[in-house]
């Protein structure tokens, strides 16, 4: 079985797709972190006023309440960033899931014997090589079918007024059919 480096040929042209995904992901994480920093900055930036005792107790008080402050800030951060990342993943992967879904429908159509249209993916869809390979496979089968049908038609009409010669020609054509289909295994 021949093969290339994993996915290099199959996903060719995916450089822009990958770069866009990573750029958007970086942007989401960066924005989320800036928001988290701003929240924590706002919480911690109120001045500690009062005398020594007041500042002492304010710091002790803050240390005691630090857990809920940090936990809540990070919970909001996680929810926001996770939500945005999930939307990004779903959006980005529809360029992979969509073509696969389309190929599955085409395969179902093929098995049920319905005419199979040429598969064309949408702009930006990943795995265009898959559609191309499937179209080539169906085209080769159609080419063989066409060749066989033509040979049979030719053999039938070769000797219209001479049944023994016509039969011999048809038998020769049957040999041709066997030879033509011998590459399939």
């Amino acid at each position: 079985m021949t093969g290339t480096a994993p996915g290099r040929a199959a996903m060719s042209g995916a450089g822009g797709y990958r770069a866009r995904f990573l750029l958007r992901l970086s942007l989401i994480v960066a924005l989320g972190t800036v928001l988290l920093f701003a929240t924590l900055f706002a919480v911690f930036s109120s001045p500690l006023s009062g005398d020594y005792e007041g500042v002492f107790f304010a710091l002790r008080h803050l240390a005691a309440f630090l857990f809920p402050i940090i936990a809540f800030s990070f919970l909001v951060y996680t929810l926001l960033v996770c939500g945005a990342t999930a939307v990004l993943c779903v959006y980005a992967l529809h360029k992979v899931a969509g073509p696969l879904y389309r190929m599955e429908r085409v395969a179902e159509s093929y098995v049920s014997g319905n005419p199979v249209p040429r598969v064309v993916f949408r702009q930006g869809d990943q795995g265009a090589a898959l559609a191309e390979a499937f179209n080539d496979f169906v085209a080769r089968l159609r080419g063989d079918r066409h060749e066989l049908a033509e040979a049979m038609e030719r053999a039938e009409g070769a000797f219209p007024g001479d049944p023994p010669a016509s039969r011999a020609e048809m038998e020769r054509c049957l040999g041709e059919i066997t030879t033509l289909l011998s590459r399939y295994r």
Binding site: M1, G7, A9, A10, A14, Q126, G127, L130, A133, F137
Partner: peptide, 15 residues
């Protein structure tokens, strides 16, 4: 991406 690419590549090779 590597995993998806390898899977699609295998399908292409088989076709």
């Amino acid at each position: 991406m590597r995993s998806i690419g390898a899977g699609i590549q295998r399908l292409v090779d088989v076709l």
